[in-house]
Simulated assay, not measured.
Amino acid sequence: MTRLDQPTVALSDDVRMPLLGFGTWQATGEQGYEAVLAALDAGYRHIDTATMYGNEAEVGRAVRESGLRREDVFVTTKLPPDRVGRERETIEQSLRALGLDQVDLWLIHWPPSAGSDSVPVWRELLAARDAGLTRAVGVSNYDTPRLDELIEATGEAPAVNQIKWSPSLYDRQRHREHRDRGIVLEGYSPFKSTDLADPVLTRIAAAHDVSPAQVVLRWHVDHEIVVIPKSVTPDRIRVNADIFAISLTAEEMRDIDALGT
């Protein structure tokens, strides 16, 4: 299965990002390697890591040993806030750890500390993209005013903003603000703030003979919101990947949206 066999979203004319990804936070060492290998075997074609996760070497090893073509696996990593001013050095270190010539997406993991300007960091990410070290660049944990600051200063919007997202955090206006700016919204920790025993989710899950977690993931995908569930349990990894036969109705989508505060 190639990554284009799954629903994707365009980041640019030549870069498409699978809407379902595999998160690797806290998945380190041999356990992290085994989890990524299991995810790729289960059909994931998008792996999300970060310099601060300390597992880029394991992620890269799993990608290489998966038997998949490099172009069929979308790899994201992130610049930590303590590396501001050492952007090029950091992406080059990440590429060496991953064993890759380039990543598909490089993100600013968190905005620089309060009062610091994100624009110089953003310019460095754009330069890394233009140098071919990454195919696309974006940010993580940015609010809308900070996104606008980058756009106004450079004329280039981040391709992606990765933020905490789930049905209970659904914010129609914030979703619209990303769409209006041409920024793909990517959600992390989809289950952490979700009550998987919520009657709405259990009812919809029962109607489709799937788990509430699968409903949550399909809800993200149907909104064209990238989602990166994380697990180190092979069975759960496989179940979380098995969402493409589900089709939520418009009414079910509205019911889940209504769980947002």
Rank of each mutant, 00 (worst) to 15 (best):
L20P: 02
L147W: 01
Y44P: 15
D41A: 11
E177M: 13
P80M: 13
P120W: 00
Q214E: 11
L259F: 01
A62M: 11
P158A: 07
D171G: 03
W106C: 07
A206E: 15
R61W: 01
P111F: 02
R70L: 12
E89A: 10
A27I: 02
G182A: 08
R129N: 12
T8H: 08
L126C: 09
L169N: 05
A136K: 00
Y188C: 04
P234I: 00
V15T: 11
R203H: 13
R86V: 03
T233D: 09
G132T: 12
D72H: 13
D195E: 08
W110Q: 14
W25P: 02
V73L: 12
A97N: 14
L185E: 15
D198F: 04
W122R: 08
R236E: 10
M253P: 05
I225D: 04
D48R: 01
S12L: 14
E30D: 15
I151K: 03
R176C: 04
R64N: 10
R129W: 10
K78Y: 11
A50E: 08
I47Y: 01
N55R: 00
R174M: 09
E152Q: 13
P81Y: 14
M17D: 06
L19Q: 04
T77S: 06
D41H: 13
E152T: 06
H208G: 06
D13W: 05
V226P: 05
S166M: 03
L37G: 03
Q26Y: 11
D130G: 07
G155R: 02
L19H: 01
G187F: 00
V200I: 09
G115A: 13
S193H: 13
V239A: 12
G182W: 13
E65N: 10
A131E: 11
S247V: 14
S12F: 09
T8M: 09
I204D: 03
P80W: 15
G99R: 10
G187V: 05
I246W: 03
A250E: 14
T261H: 10
A245E: 15
Y53C: 05
G67K: 11
N161P: 05
E251Q: 12
W25K: 03
H178N: 04
P7G: 05
V119H: 04
W106E: 08
D41R: 13
H46P: 07
N161R: 03
V200T: 15
L107T: 03
T77I: 05
I225G: 02
R135G: 10
P18I: 03
D5T: 13
V221R: 02
A131L: 08
R146S: 14
I237M: 06
G260S: 08
A35K: 01
V15L: 14
T24E: 09
A50P: 08
T134I: 14
M1S: 14
I183S: 04
W219R: 00
V226M: 04
E34F: 00
R203V: 08
D148I: 07
G67H: 11
V84W: 05
V221W: 00
L4T: 15
P80L: 06
L196Y: 00
R176N: 07
V227P: 03
M17S: 06
L185Y: 06
L150M: 14
L100P: 01
D195I: 09
D235W: 06
E92L: 12
R69P: 11
Q93W: 14
E30F: 03
R236Q: 14
G32I: 03
